[in-house]
């Protein structure tokens, strides 16, 4: 009986030792995998920044009036297609540019209730106008550029920055936001 107990104790001791060894190894590799995941995230971040910078400094997409770049040409944005984006920046890249209209201040205390109501209605119209997507037909009365075939996808990482957009037809520069998204699996 005593012998059996000793054998059992010994077996438990051996198993416990092996379990500890396996656990230590698992922890070492586990940490490596975790750091690999972190590096991948950093790489996606870095790639999205690179695409964004390339886009903003591309001579083709920017207006020649502004030599230092970062003023996108609205006509170029309108004629550009998803195929062009794929050719320039690779597959699974989402690009959206949005410009904003100047809106009146409806909180002005000097406004009467009728004026305020008109003001708010005007803001509503402006907001709905801001969602008009640009095509060759709607240009220049449009404010959003998206590209069919380069839609948002799950697991994309997005980055948005303010951007200037040259409204060619009235030679003004509008304030906008460019958003790009890339898929992690691309890296």
């Amino acid at each position: 009986m005593k012998g059996q107990v000793e054998i059992m104790e010994y077996m438990v001791f051996v198993l416990l030792t092996m379990f500890i060894i396996a656990f230590v190894l698992f922890m070492i590799f586990g940490f490596q995998f975790l750091s690999l995941g972190g590096e991948q995230a950093g790489e996606i971040e870095s790639r999205s920044l690179f695409i964004l910078q390339s886009l903003l400094s591309s001579k083709t997409l920017n207006s020649p009036q502004y030599q230092k770049g970062s003023v996108l040409d609205d006509a170029v944005l309108t004629v550009m297609t998803c195929d062009d984006i794929v050719d320039m920046f690779g597959e699974r890249v989402y690009v959206e540019v949005r410009t904003f209209l100047e809106k009146p201040d409806c909180d002005d205390p000097g406004l009467s209730s009728l004026e305020r109501s008109r003001c708010e209605s005007r803001i509503g119209k402006l907001i709905s106008m801001e969602n008009i997507q640009c095509t060759s037909e709607k240009y220049p009365e449009c404010f959003v550029w998206r590209y069919q075939g380069c839609e948002k996808q799950d697991e994309m990482v997005f980055r948005s920055v303010p951007v200037n957009v040259l409204r060619k037809m009235n030679s003004t520069v509008a304030m906008g936001v460019i958003t790009i998204g890339i898929r992690g699996s691309e890296t």
Binding site: T60, L61, A75, V76, V79, D84, D87, M88
Partner: peptide, 9 residues
């Protein structure tokens, strides 16, 4: 690519 975009533009 640039030539195509430019012509369309």
């Amino acid at each position: 690519i640039a030539a195509k975009i430019m012509e369309e533009r």
